[in-house]
Design a protein around this nucleic acid. Structure first.
Lengths: 337, 337
DNA sequence: ATCTTCGTTGGTAACGTTGTCATTACTTTT
DNA sequence: AAAAGTAATGACAACGTTACCAACGAAGAT
């Protein structure tokens, strides 16, 4: 199995079909002005030899790499896989491919991964959020292709940004809880709050609650990766600190879901004893009963637009009107508030 | 922003530090036998110029690409992101990177994506399942690097395989339901059963139920991608066909979860009126109440091993004892059976 | 003092493709 | 029928790196 004396190259194809290497090249990449006869000869030879293009060689000569570096914090919740689905669909039909890296919610790791990625000379870069190390910014300042920062639009984009406002998200959660009459509100986060986007939401919500006259009672930040189990643990800790809390908002739906089940298991009445709000609008949380009150983020759409922007830029459309695409979020009122 | 007159190359670094290009190259890739003086000169020059390696050029000369092609069906449930997390961790410390493609549970798409991927001359290939088109097999037969097929081990691997047995999974589900006393058992699938692995499980379960004398009553295959909503719809259809069903097993946990909530909403007693079994062991389904009876698949571990195998092979360890790594599954008995 | 050996450095030639320009063959125009 | 285009093909060099081999000097062996 798996032996190949030597891969055949354009040279072989050219030799077999009796044409020049460059003509063979033109046929293989569908360049214009090729006679039908030539095309057929070359295509047949290529087929006989099982010829495969070598894009490494092509990229070296041609500069453009047709690789898009995508750096996400993690795959452990649905957010980034959904974004990548969108990117994949946007890139379909182009020759572009995603090369993947994970930063684990750590800016220094992001920097290292980016440094490595750039050695592949990618055509574009997609990364998460607007916060990066100075070295990351420096590297990207010298990068000549499109750069899209996804998820967060509260701040200055390096180049292009697609996402939703964390500030708006946090504020919306705070207002909703206040309007529904809750006054003793707490927060549960995870990842040691290294996820800057959830931190921004918490801060915005806290500020809004302050403004409304119902300041955040307390918060529990779990150090672990977010999961339902950690959400349950978080609520448990919260209630141990203060049993009079009447609402909890979570960094995301996974945590909230765990919190919800914990409360139910404890015999608490949700939302009368305690109200719960998540973030993201995962469909799993919309199929349970009571449905989780949460904020729907257009994750697929964000990925899709990011991919579209990369393509647009690469194909020369330099005139992208808005550097920042601010997408809308939507409060999904469920039965937990 | 984003202009770069010209990226500096090894030649520039060599010129600035007054050494030969090849020496600069050796310093940049930590080759042995470099004097300290030379190393320092070169590193300083590289820093001054902001030199970045160009691995496209390096790969062309050196053959090895340090890219691993990863083709998964979809990112829409947790299975493949979890596997990719495992791969990423396994690849950490090497210079290898994942290049991503999605087949959408379609063998022809897989073929097209693979064809494209191979033009990047990857060092290894990871793909899902053991079923591929003839053309895919043909391409892979000519591929010289390691090939790992993940998730399924029921069949012959092209090269290496890591996963669990679908047959064993299906049989285990059937036995469990039978042992718990259920006799009127039905099945709900999705993706139009284009996911061959869930099909294999269904077939195995069906055979075992037949053998045990409690043949499958009926099954509903939804055409859509699997989601809780589709699972709920599936159960609804099932109960419309036959109200006497006493147990349902699902192609996966997402469907089962939706089914569970649907049954609860309909006022059915789970598991007394109807028992439910999922597949995968997603943690979200283990934090709800009742916990979902399901089969835990070691997804992260599968990715991890796949990555380890790729690395081992690339670094010359040709002596991999077992071509197929058959990992264990585990029945998680929850409150739904 | 001469011969090895080894650590260190350099020169040359690829790797497989494609951009650029040149050339040939074939139309169309006047 | 000559001039002027245009379509089709080819030659060459280059992209930035590294494999391979050669060469140098210094240290150790004889």
């Amino acid at each position: 199995m798996n032996k190949n004396p030597r891969k055949s190259t354009l040279k072989d194809v050219a030799a077999l079909s009796g044409v020049s290497v460059i003509s063979a090249s033109r046929v293989m990449r569908n360049a214009p002005n090729i006679s039908k006869a030539l095309r057929e000869k070359v295509e047949e030879a290529a087929k006989t030899l099982g010829y495969q293009r070598n894009r490494i060689a092509g990229s070296l000569r041609g500069q453009a790499t047709e690789l898009v570096a995508v750096i996400v914090p993690s795959m452990s919740n649905h957010v980034f896989p959904n974004i990548m689905d969108g990117i994949d669909d946007a890139l379909e039909g182009s020759q572009l491919r995603q090369v993947l890296g994970m930063s684990k919610y750590d800016a220094a790791t992001e920097e290292a991964v980016l440094r490595d990625m750039l050695t592949w000379n990618p055509a574009g870069v997609i990364l998460s959020g607007l916060e990066h190390t100075d070295a990351t910014r420096e590297m990207l300042a010298h990068f000549s292709g499109p750069i899209v920062e996804v998820m967060d639009v509260d701040g200055d984009a390096l180049d292009l940004a697609v996402g939703v406002s964390m500030k708006e998200s946090g504020t919306l959660i705070a207002r909703h809880l206040f309007e529904e009459g809750y006054r003793r509100i707490a927060y549960v986060g995870a990842w040691g709050e290294r996820d800057i986007r959830s931190l921004k939401r918490r801060v915005a919500a806290e500020a809004e609650l302050e403004r409304l006259g119902a300041p955040l009672v307390t918060s529990v930040i779990m150090n672990e990766a977010s999961s339902p189990q950690i959400g349950a643990d978080g609520v448990k800790q919260l209630l141990a600190i203060d049993r009079n809390i009447d609402a909890v908002f979570f960094a995301n739906d996974d945590l909230a879901l765990g919190g919800l089940f914990y409360c139910q298991a404890q015999g608490l009445d949700v939302p009368n004893d305690v109200a719960l709000v998540g973030y993201n609008g995962l469909d799993i949380c919309q199929s349970i009963s009571p449905r989780l009150t949460t904020i729907l983020t257009p994750r697929y759409e964000i990925g899709r637009r990011a991919g579209d922007l990369i393509r647009a830029r690469i194909s020369g459309a330099d005139a992208i009107s808005d550097r920042t695409s601010h997408l809308d979020i939507q409060l999904l009122k469920g039965g937990t508030t």
